[in-house]
Design a protein around this nucleic acid. Sequence first.
DNA 1: CTCTAAACGAGACGGTACGTCCAGTCTTCGG
DNA 2: CCGAAGACTGGACGTACCGTCTCGTTTAGAG
Lengths: 205, 205, 205, 205
Amino acid sequence: MLVWCSPMTDHRSNPRRRGQELETAILEATIAELAEVGYAGLTMDAVAARAKAGKVSIYRRWPTKAALVMAAGYQYTRGAQVPPDTGSLRQDTFTWLRGFADQLEGPVGQALLGAVVDSANSEQPGELAKLSEGRGRQVAELLVQRARNRGEPVVAGLTDVQLSAPSNALKLYYFIHGGRVDDSVLWAIVEELAMPLWRAESRGC
Amino acid sequence: MLVWCSPMTDHRSNPRRRGQELETAILEATIAELAEVGYAGLTMDAVAARAKAGKVSIYRRWPTKAALVMAAGYQYTRGAQVPPDTGSLRQDTFTWLRGFADQLEGPVGQALLGAVVDSANSEQPGELAKLSEGRGRQVAELLVQRARNRGEPVVAGLTDVQLSAPSNALKLYYFIHGGRVDDSVLWAIVEELAMPLWRAESRGC
Amino acid sequence: MLVWCSPMTDHRSNPRRRGQELETAILEATIAELAEVGYAGLTMDAVAARAKAGKVSIYRRWPTKAALVMAAGYQYTRGAQVPPDTGSLRQDTFTWLRGFADQLEGPVGQALLGAVVDSANSEQPGELAKLSEGRGRQVAELLVQRARNRGEPVVAGLTDVQLSAPSNALKLYYFIHGGRVDDSVLWAIVEELAMPLWRAESRGC
Amino acid sequence: MLVWCSPMTDHRSNPRRRGQELETAILEATIAELAEVGYAGLTMDAVAARAKAGKVSIYRRWPTKAALVMAAGYQYTRGAQVPPDTGSLRQDTFTWLRGFADQLEGPVGQALLGAVVDSANSEQPGELAKLSEGRGRQVAELLVQRARNRGEPVVAGLTDVQLSAPSNALKLYYFIHGGRVDDSVLWAIVEELAMPLWRAESRGC
DNA sequence: CTCTAAACGAGACGGTACGTCCAGTCTTCGG
DNA sequence: CCGAAGACTGGACGTACCGTCTCGTTTAGAG
């Protein structure tokens, strides 16, 4: 044979993570980075370093920063989002928006923000819609349904535009003003947007 | 040495622009770049090159890319935005939203997008609000006032949230879906959001 | 999730090679890669792919790229190298150098080059010497011996330095100039280096 | 106007170096890196960091690692190379080779080595020749001329191949064996290569 | 008018992050 | 168990921009 061997020892972290375990670690690192430095300050290098992963392992899964951030945000918000039943559509709606607004202050807000800007100039503008849009409408529908079941007077046949109007107003407010959304803003959305659109009695004789 | 030689020759363009003339040239170059490559693809170097200006002349006026883009967008939209009186609040609203949506396809949309993302992580959130927010509410107020003057049944005492709801819905739709906004989306906003909120008769017995 | 799916399918090639057969296949793949892309362009992945072998199977045998390349070069040149007897030391020498120079144009040259650079910074300098050095001296000694047997006037007691001078001159010329070595260069080495050093009559009164 | 200004202070090293001063700093950093980690271990990042320069400032001047290293080696060896006149061609030659061999132990050897390997696979194989080849022949010619002036019997009309044979033998020995070259090797080159080729009396009756 | 200070164009500079490539190690499976 | 396959960590690559700085030139405005 012919071996003259430079030793070149190599002490890497063991055991090596793969597949789902690694994926989760990367997404968690992404969430942490988003919380610390925000979307604009997030770098692939920093995520890789925090996750103790190679950059290639990230790029193999998500081709862009936007895709990574969207996946992280999706994972983060997968848990329970349904607000408790307070017995009143008005209060239910406020509670829901308050919880959403609180989330927006953290990594979720940063993820949403980043997803918007990067997906706007991408080839796949519809990807973001899947992640972002349905949620607000679904929860709103649930709240309205609960109210109807309780016997509250609710408009029948609410459209997507009408159901998602409150959460959209909140999102846009956050996009433009940033930071924490005050209760007064949320109440304004509830009283002036959700109630007029959703409650039948507000249109009554 | 092996490579390189000093420049020496120097043929600069004359006469040199200053003050307002230079500023306008830079903003126009910014608009043009936004239209061509979008906000994410816009670089200060490219703007400077297109404007045949030094980068310092840009940074002297606007400290960041976001500031430059917002200034350019502001300048671009300074012109008339008030839609013609079609004799119907419904048609007026659609026409206005159609014009706005058309603008969003071009540099204005890119500017808005960029302003959102960069201002979110800045120390001065809220600055964007001044530029972006008032407009939609103002035009909506004008349309409603015209309708009232024509005798159309319009809700009195509409709030900011209610007046800006349609334009906000459009903006958010653009942010999330990108690209051209279809007429059907605009009509949905008009019929399901603007009319229910603004027209008194739609709440009638 | 948003992207990606696990591989699952797995069609391995059968039957599996082992031991000598596998080793030969790897070395042949190495030679082929050297010929195609040169030493600098050679990658372990490419060799493994071409040999349809796992990278581990390579690293198990040769710890570094340099070791692999040297082994491949050694195997490749194991065959007959002795030039035919032309009846003249001068012509024999030229023929031999010509053949050697021709080899240098192909994988052998690339292997030699790579071995030099990688072994220079290794812990085991001198290993390369075993592979590379003896050959030139041995063939030169053979040529001189044949000439002596034919009755040509040849200096007795030629040293290693003197015997390997022509082949060394050729190697260095190749290292520095690269590419194909012209006949004129080889003739210069023969006439101005080999003959003065080796032929007794050229030192005669 | 429209300025909302994030301060973004920036404390870089001042005054900034340019042109010749910067070039020298980079080459010195290259020499230092070569001495510390050798050619194979040298990275553009490390050179840039040590020189406190941007990588672009290096790439602007030298397109490849090989070009940088060659320039550094050239700069480093620009100083006096001519050995002192010892009164004997034999001793002069040894002294010269000893000095050359000593240099090869340091950054010059690494530079030569690296230049060889990277230029071999380049488009400009002739570039290296200019840097490397002339020197050995020139000094040898000078030594021989001095000997002739002293009255030593020297062969007239020595060719390039003959003049550069000793230094080439040394270079190749270094390439293959690496590390420090022993005096005995140098004396062998002097006695068995330089003297037989250069001294007329060694061919005399 | 001349003189001076500021603004300007051009682009080199130090620096950060990018997305890619490869070396060498580790894991997973099938035979 | 070994071999094929290939994912993994780590690190250098060469590029793109950022925002600053240096260099001469041009211009405006004061004396």
